[in-house]
C-alpha cells in the first residue's frame, strides 16, 4: 500500500481541489481510495458531485454512573483529565458530556465492585464509503463527518482513516484538514509522500513552515511543496522556507478562472478541461507522483 497525504497548513489553499484531481488521474492506472479527513468540513464529495453512502457511526465511550452502587468516593472526578465530572454536595458524580473525551480513566479508577461507572457510548460522527465513477475511471471515497456541535475531531478522523485503510489495496490518498493539530499529525503518519499545498501569501508561507516542521517531527521522508495560485505574488518567500526544510517545490499551479468552472460543474478540472494550464500542471504532478510510488 502506498500512502499519499495532501496537506498544507493554511485553509483554502486548494488541498481538496488538488486531492480530487490527483485521485482522478492516479485512478486511471491504479486501484485507489481517497480519504477525506477534514471531518469538520468535508467537501471532496461536493467537488465530485456525489451523495455520501454507507454510513457508519463513530462512537466514543461515555460513562454512566450507577448511583445505587456508587460509594461516593469521588475518585472518578479526580481521575478525569478533562474535568468532565463534577461531584455534587453529596459527592455523587455528574457528567458534563461536551467535556468528555471518552478516555475511560473514570471507569478504570472506580474502586467499587461491581463498578459504579458503566461504559456507555455516544455518537460523535459518521464515516461514509462512496463509489466515484467518471466514465471508466473510478475510485472509492471514504469520508468522515463530525456531528455539528461536537468538539473532538480526533476520534472521527481516526475512524475515517481506519475505514480507508481497511478498504485500500493499492494507493491511498488522504486529504487532511487545515492546521497542524493532532488530527492532522495522525493523518500524515506513515505517508510515503506528503504534498504540502500552499500559496504565496503571508498566511500561506507561515502555515507552510508549520506543516514542514510537523512533517519533520513525525519523521516523514518525502515532502513535496506545491505552490498554488503561484502567479498572484512573488514565490521567493515560499522557496526560501521550502529550501530551509529541504522540501523540493514540485509544482506551481497558476491562478486561473478555469478552476471556478470546475467548481460550478462539480467535476474535476482535469476531466472537464484537460487542456487548461491548471490541468497540465496537475497532470505533470501526477506523473512525478507515479514515478515514486
Amino acid at each position: 500500500m502506498v500512502k499519499i497525504a495532501v496537506t498544507g497548513g493554511k485553509g483554502g489553499t486548494g488541498k481538496s481541489t488538488l486531492a480530487v484531481n490527483l485521485a482522478f488521474l492516479l485512478a486511471e492506472q491504479r486501484d485507489l481510495v481517497l480519504a477525506d479527513l477534514d471531518v469538520e468540513a468535508p467537501n471532496d464529495h461536493i467537488l465530485l458531485s456525489v451523495e455520501l453512502e454507507g454510513r457508519e457511526e463513530v462512537r466514543i465511550m461515555t460513562p454512566i454512573f450507577n448511583l445505587k452502587t456508587c460509594i461516593r468516593c469521588g475518585v472518578c472526578a479526580y481521575a478525569c483529565p478533562d474535568s468532565a465530572i463534577l461531584l455534587t454536595k453529596t459527592k455523587l458524580p455528574v457528567l458534563i458530556p461536551t467535556m468528555c473525551s471518552g478516555c475511560r480513566a473514570c471507569y478504570f479508577a472506580c474502586p467499587t465492585r461491581p463498578k459504579a461507572v458503566i461504559e456507555g457510548y455516544r455518537v460523535v460522527g459518521y464515516t461514509y464509503e462512496t463509489k466515484v465513477t467518471f466514465g471508466n475511471v473510478g475510485f472509492v471515497l471514504v469520508t468522515g463527518v463530525l456531528i455539528e456541535g461536537e468538539e473532538r475531531t480526533y476520534p472521527v478522523t481516526l475512524a475515517t482513516l481506519r475505514r480507508a485503510q481497511r478498504k485500500v489495496r493499492d494507493v491511498l490518498i488522504v486529504d487532511t484538514s487545515a492546521g497542524t493539530s493532532n488530527s492532522v499529525a495522525a493523518s500524515l503518519e506513515n505517508s510515503d509522500l506528503i504534498l504540502a499545498v500552499t500559496e504565496p501569501t503571508p498566511l500561506g508561507i507561515h502555515d507552510l513552515e508549520m506543516i514542514l516542521r510537523l512533517s519533520r517531527e513525525i519523521g516523514a521522508d518525502r515532502v513535496w511543496v506545491i505552490i498554488n495560485r503561484s502567479t498572484i505574488a512573488p514565490n521567493e518567500p515560499v522557496i526560501k522556507i521550502a529550501e530551509k526544510y529541504e522540501a523540493p517545490i514540485i509544482a506551481k499551479v497558476p491562478y486561473s478562472k478555469e478552476i471556478v468552472e470546475s467548481y460550478v460543474r462539480g467535476k474535476p478540472l482535469v476531466l472537464i478541461n484537460p487542456a487548461s494550464t491548471v490541468s497540465k500542471s496537475i497532470r505533470d504532478l501526477a506523473r512525478k507522483v507515479t514515478e515514486v510510488i
Binding site: D82, S83, A84, L86, L87, T88, K89, M99
Partner: peptide
C-alpha cells in the same frame, strides 16, 4: 490558573462551598 477545564473546576469549588 488551570490549563484546561477552568469553568468546571470553578463550578466544583462552588459546589464544595455549598
Amino acid at each position: 490558573k488551570a490549563v484546561s477545564g477552568a469553568g468546571i473546576k470553578a463550578v466544583q469549588k462552588l459546589i464544595d462551598e455549598g
